[in-house]
């Protein structure tokens, strides 16, 4: 059953001023429970606007967002409740940290949700563990943490609300390569245990190829494609015309294929490429 359904969504910034700009234009999609959706698109393609409409931070000009089959704007006064169900981690979330200790900051969401002290304590510790923050860090001021730790603390603050749908807007931007890998694997570990739906916006095609069940491609406010990473990343020309790339290894394998080597389409990881090459060499009797 689809957990989120979007129907003919439109949104325009600065309506009626000279700075008018249509960010999302007649967009429809449907996402099943437990799916990991990778969202890619050029800067200004409307990704951030779209994800902010998913949890009701932006009210669409027209169209609907259905969560479990109910329009989230059917009762505007209850929109806060939607935000606990659709958790949203913004770009550079470390800039939203404000409380005296990391513990208090992570408990901000659960407290707003109205949980009891004991419940809060439990979810805070649990979500800190998910993102790999050790217990002694919880009593420190968030402003004393390192950049990567701040990022984790901020993500824990959203995970602590235990949302059914988790939206991450470029969670790995500005982290070092090791930090990115660790953070991504923690998010995937969390996904495996919690089995919730995840939207992840990223500029790193490698990351998207690695974790997403389906990839959404946005261009100029419209949904261009939504399909498995394999199918999306085989359409290299179409992606490049939108200012997007495919993972490096996919590009190499595609250009080798063009020169007559018999590889399959849409190879997404180095490991996969390796086994394909070995298979080919074996077939030709070279090893």
């Amino acid at each position: 059953m689809s957990i989120i359904e979007v129907k003919n969504l439109c949104y325009t910034y600065g309506k009626g001023t000279p700075f008018e700009k249509t960010a999302v234009n007649d967009l429809s999609l449907s996402v099943d429970e437990g799916e990991v959706i990778g969202l890619i698109g050029h800067t200004g393609s409307g990704k951030s606007t779209l994800v902010q409409m998913l949890n009701g931070l932006i009210r669409p000009d027209s169209g609907q967002v259905l969560l479990n089959g109910c329009d989230i704007w059917s009762n505007p006064k209850e929109i806060r409740k939607i935000r606990f169900k659709v958790g949203m981690v913004f770009q550079y979330p470390e800039y939203q940290l404000f409380d005296e200790t990391v513990y208090k900051d992570i408990s901000f969401g659960p407290k707003n949700k109205g949980l009891s002290e004991n419940e809060i304590d439990e979810v805070v510790r649990k979500s800190a563990k998910f993102v790999g923050l050790s217990d002694n860090l919880l009593q420190q001021s968030p402003f004393d943490l390192s950049g990567g730790e701040k990022r984790r603390a901020a993500i824990a603050g959203v995970i602590a609300m235990d949302p059914d749908v988790l939206v991450l807007d470029e969670p790995t931007a500005g982290l070092d390569p090791l930090g990115r890998d660790v953070l991504l694997s923690q998010i995937m570990q969390y996904h495996k245990e919690r089995k919730n739906t995840i939207f992840i916006v990223s500029h790193s095609m490698e990351d998207i190829a690695q974790i997403a069940d389906r990839v959404m491609v946005m261009n100029k406010g419209r949904l261009e494609m939504i399909d498995t990473p394999k199918k999306v990343f085989s359409q290299i020309d179409r992606l490049e015309s939108m200012g997007l790339r495919v993972p490096q290894i996919t590009k190499i394998m595609l250009s080798l294929k063009k020169r007559g080597f018999e590889f399959s389409d849409g190879i997404l990881s180095v490991e996969q490429a390796f086994s394909e090459i070995v298979d080919l060499l074996k077939k030709e009797g070279k090893i």
Binding site: Q52, N55, L57, R80, R83, F84, G87, M88, F90, P93, Y95, Q96, F108, G109, N112, K113, G157, V158, M161
Partner: peptide, 12 residues
């Protein structure tokens, strides 16, 4: 941006 981020965490 910060307001949106805190609203996303249920700030009223």
């Amino acid at each position: 941006k910060i307001m949106s981020a805190q609203k996303a965490r249920g700030a009223d």
